[in-house]
């Protein structure tokens, strides 16, 4: 004998196991499922058929979870908290990167003035100089990313992702250049790169056809 309540409980467990863990979407999806089952019953389907049709119609858990995740329901914390945390991190990052940008550029400026780099008799190009330039890129990236983290618009997401990847490349350069230097700064930048990537604004969900 088909037990509808038991079947719905099983369906809920499956959804939960697939990652739709926040209560609001699950509750809403269940309400929808029950509504559809009732409608299928009215059109003549037996309870089991009605349940199966409704489950099929509502869609599979995996793509649904993906869409909810893109809509901001990561399952860890709700969207607003996520946003607030990203704003705090963005402020830290902004402060760190503005400071970092000027601290890196400061030792280079006197060298240019003295003609060592661009006007000297010997055009001094060494690995360290280019690595320093790359580190500057990290900080510039940080400043831009911090500002973009405040915006939730979709068009900025790709830019943020690109900046995070660029940051990762620059991070490697930073480690090579300062491997005996400020490890704390390197760790902080690694944390920044990870946070930018993880807390990028949610993407607009796509609506797929049945």
């Amino acid at each position: 004998m088909f037990d509808l309540e038991q079947a719905i409980t099983e369906w809920r467990k499956q959804m939960f196991a697939s990652g739709i863990k926040t209560p609001v979407p699950l509750k809403e999806l269940e309400s929808h499922l029950r509504e559809d089952i009732e409608q299928q019953n009215k059109s003549g389907a037996n309870p089991q058929q009605a349940f199966e049709i409704a489950v099929q119609q509502i869609g599979q858990a995996e793509p649904l979870k993906e869409e909810f995740r893109n809509a901001g329901f990561s399952g860890w914390f709700d969207e607003n908290k996520n946003r607030r945390i990203s704003h705090i991190l963005a402020l830290f990052q902004l402060e760190y990167c503005v400071w970092g940008f000027f601290s890196v550029i400061a030792p280079i400026l006197p060298m240019v003035d003295c003609g060592i780099i661009f006007y000297g008799p010997k055009f001094i190009i060494n690995l360290k100089f280019f690595l320093t330039l790359l580190v500057k890129v990290i900080f510039l990236r940080g400043i831009i990313a911090s500002i973009l983290l405040f915006c939730g618009k979709n068009k900025e997401i790709r830019t943020i992702q690109f900046i995070a990847v660029l940051g990762l490349a620059a991070l490697v350069a930073q480690i090579i250049a300062f491997r005996t230097g400020p490890l704390l700064a390197i760790a902080f930048n690694a944390f920044n790169v990870a946070s930018i990537w993880l807390l990028r604004p949610p993407q607009a969900p796509k609506l797929t056809t049945a």
Binding site: P25, E28, L29, H32, D36, Q57, I58, G59, P63, L64, E67, F68, N70, A71, F73, P205, K206, L207, T208, T209, A210
Partner: peptide, 10 residues
Amino acid sequence: QWTDGMLYPV
């Protein structure tokens, strides 16, 4: 026709 569940994330 939409896959019903997909409406909710939207």
